[in-house]
Amino acid sequence: MARTAPAANSAASLELIDGFSLEMTGKDVQALAEAKDRIPSGTRISVTFLGNEDLAMRIAAAQAVLDRGFVPVPHVSARRLKSQGELEEFLGRLQEIGASEHIFTIGGDPAVPEGPYEDSLAVISSGVLQQYGVHEVGIGGYPEGHPDISRDALEHAFWDKVAALKDQGLGMFVTTQFAFDTEPVVAWIDAVRARGIDGPIRVGTPGPAGIRRLLNFARRFGVGANAMIVKKYGFSLTNLMGDAGPDHFVDDLAAVLASAPSTDDAGSGLGIAGHVGLHFYTFGGLAATADWARRFTDERS
Rank of each mutant, 00 (worst) to 15 (best):
N9C: 14
S10M: 09
L16N: 05
E23H: 06
E23C: 01
K27F: 15
A33E: 11
A33H: 11
D37K: 07
S41C: 07
G42F: 09
R44W: 10
G51T: 13
D54Q: 10
M57H: 09
I59R: 03
I59C: 12
A60Q: 14
D67F: 06
R68M: 06
G69H: 04
S77F: 00
A78E: 02
L81F: 03
E89K: 14
F90C: 11
G92T: 02
L94D: 05
L94T: 07
Q95M: 07
G98V: 04
H102N: 14
D109G: 00
A111N: 12
Y117R: 11
E118H: 10
G127T: 06
L129C: 03
G133N: 12
V134N: 09
G141F: 01
D160L: 11
Q177A: 00
A179T: 13
D181H: 12
D181T: 03
T182I: 15
E183A: 15
V185Y: 05
D198N: 14
R202G: 00
G204T: 05
G210F: 11
I211E: 03
M228N: 11
K232L: 13
Y233H: 11
L237H: 13
M241H: 11
G242P: 01
P246W: 05
H248P: 00
F249K: 03
S259P: 01
S259W: 08
S262L: 05
D265L: 10
L270Q: 07
G277T: 06
T297K: 02
